[in-house]
Design a protein around this nucleic acid. Sequence first.
DNA 1: ACTACTCCCTGCCAGC
DNA 2: TGCTGGCAGGGAGTAG
Length: 297
Amino acid sequence: MPELPEVETVRRGLQPALEGGRIVSVETRRPDLRFPFPEGFAETLTDRRVTALGRRAKYLTVHVEGGVVLICHLGMSGSFRIEAAETSTTPGIFHHERSKLTAHDHVVFTVKSRAGEATRIIFNDPRRFGFMLLSQEAVLDQHPLLAGLGIEPTGNALSGELISGLFRDRMTPLKSALLDQRLIAGIGNIYACEAMWWSKLSPRRTAGSIASGPGKPSRRADRLAEALRSVIAEAIEAGGSSLRDHIQTDGSLGYFQHRFKVYDREGEHCLRRECSGAIARIVQAGRSTFYCPVCQR
DNA sequence: ACTACTCCCTGCCAGC
DNA sequence: TGCTGGCAGGGAGTAG
């Protein structure tokens, strides 16, 4: 469940249990996810207070005492759930009572919250494309996985002019450029498709073709910037998108999937007023792209 | 510096 | 019923 809006939703969902709390124990139930857990992973985090929860693109950052930062990525199928650490003596406090761990529950954090409640925060990831690494606060931006990331699509800084500069002369398809985390960071397959629909741009045109010429602003880049910002903002507002089996996770209470204009709508009619098109599915860079060939040009 | 492609892993589902 | 191929919200690594 991992594009920017879903990760942001996870961050907000974890905040009450985690921020200001103390990590009492960390249990890794296998030696690796996508990458091996770093040396001393559990020891480094144990008995430290969590000072803040952050996010950069699709990365979640857990900042703890002593300048240590836990970098988490959910991959394709990663999720967190929050449970009571013990059978609750005051019923009704926790949404989830303590459950049996399953095969894909890979990491269990026990946290004593600021309010004194003990919770278990469990990371589950069937496909294990997710990972957890450690870094230091002072050099977080220089971490190899974060250093090359592009601009966040969440603020006014993402302008048409900026996109123009980023995309100029690129021969890769627009869709591929949107998925390139070094240019704009946090966009994934769903929101790339959705933003291109909103801005009426074909995923097949080259990225460079929406850039401005010398001295001229680009209407297309302006439209794309506006679409990206609004679709991301609205998805965050909606708590992200919940797909397939990711319903019961705390980060997937979202309902933005009901507002998809093109994603997973192959063969259905285009939802733009007065457009007679049907949504097509093509494969670009090994992933599905959904778009309307009639109104997206 | 770009661009394109393979691979990592498990689960689910449509189609035979 | 049971198998098979295709597909899934990502991105690191490699080779041109």
